[in-house]
């Protein structure tokens, strides 16, 4: 009797071990991707990117924040009015904060004179080689084949390793329940719970139904240009061909995909 119980427990233990090993095996020898049908109107970009034409962003000095407001209401971003809990996907900052180390007094003069001392628009760079994706222990943030770096709010454990890894300060944690602080809820996009990380998603939910990103759509001066880098006839490619552009911290090897025209 004792002998059979012993061998039963042994086999039971080994089978439990087998179940435990399954996710590991899956990780090494992955199964196929799930299939789903796309919206017929969806944009099918191969490599999405954005050009920020600062020369056109002329109303920012007069307090224009159309792109920020559009993003906030499209994505149910809460307003806490304190920097500690703050959540921002796209925001304005000065040149020396957007491009630290690249400032010099003469460039400062240029920005003051020719660009009217504009604030610069900063957001997630949707890097080709994103450090945040590399460090995430649960693959809650990942890079899609079309280059967009997205978040799975339902998988994120809130460890904030990605926030340490992002060299652009683009990531936010929901330090507290955001829902009471959402001004007007947009039912087209999920709200988040406290304790998960979020950031700009290039409006992947709008691209999927054939709409441009909310910030791009909101800018009346067409300072934000969004498009497919793999398409040689796209507007972004035309701008990159014809105008000199810079990126934020390209030396870090992240290959950021937001380009700036000064």
């Amino acid at each position: 009797m004792d002998d059979t119980r012993r061998s039963f427990l042994k086999i039971a233990g080994l089978s439990m071990l087998g179940f435990g090993a399954k996710p590991v095996v899956d990780a090494v020898a992955g199964t196929g991707d799930p299939k789903f049908e796309k919206d017929s109107k969806a944009f099918n970009g191969k490599r999405w990117a954005m050009v920020v034409d600062q020369q056109k962003c002329l109303k920012a000095k007069e307090g224009c924040k159309d792109c920020v407001t559009a993003c906030n209401s499209a994505h149910n971003i809460p307003e806490f009015n304190n920097p500690k809990d703050e959540i921002k996907w796209i925001w304005q900052t000065s040149f020396e904060h957007a491009f630290p180390g690249q400032e010099n007094p003469y460039l400062d003069e240029y920005i003051k004179k020719s660009l009217k001392g504009l604030p610069f628009m900063v957001l997630c760079n949707h890097c080709d080689n994103p450090p945040c994706v590399r460090v995430c222990p649960v693959q809650a943030t990942f890079r899609r084949p079309d280059g967009i770096v997205v978040m799975d709010y339902h998988r994120c454990i809130g460890c904030r390793f990605c926030m340490a890894a992002c060299p652009y300060g683009a990531r936010n944690l929901n330090w507290r329940d955001p829902r009471p602080f959402i001004k007007k809820e947009n039912p087209e996009y999920p709200t988040r719970t406290r304790g998960v990380v979020e950031k700009c998603n290039f409006c992947s939910e709008l691209l999927a139904v054939g709409k441009m990103p909310a910030c791009v759509d909101a800018c009346k001066d067409k300072a934000l240009v969004f498009g497919d880098l793999e398409d040689p006839n796209s507007e972004v490619r035309e701008l990159l061909r014809s105008r000199p552009t810079i990126q934020r911290k390209p030396q870090l090897g992240t290959r950021p995909q937001i380009y700036y025209i000064l």
Binding site: P23, V138, I157, G158, C159, V196
Partner: peptide, 13 residues
């Protein structure tokens, strides 16, 4: 952890 209830995601994925 922001979501300690999901800590075992580290083992699941």
């Amino acid at each position: 952890l922001g979501r300690p209830d999901r800590a075992f995601n580290v083992l699941l994925y």
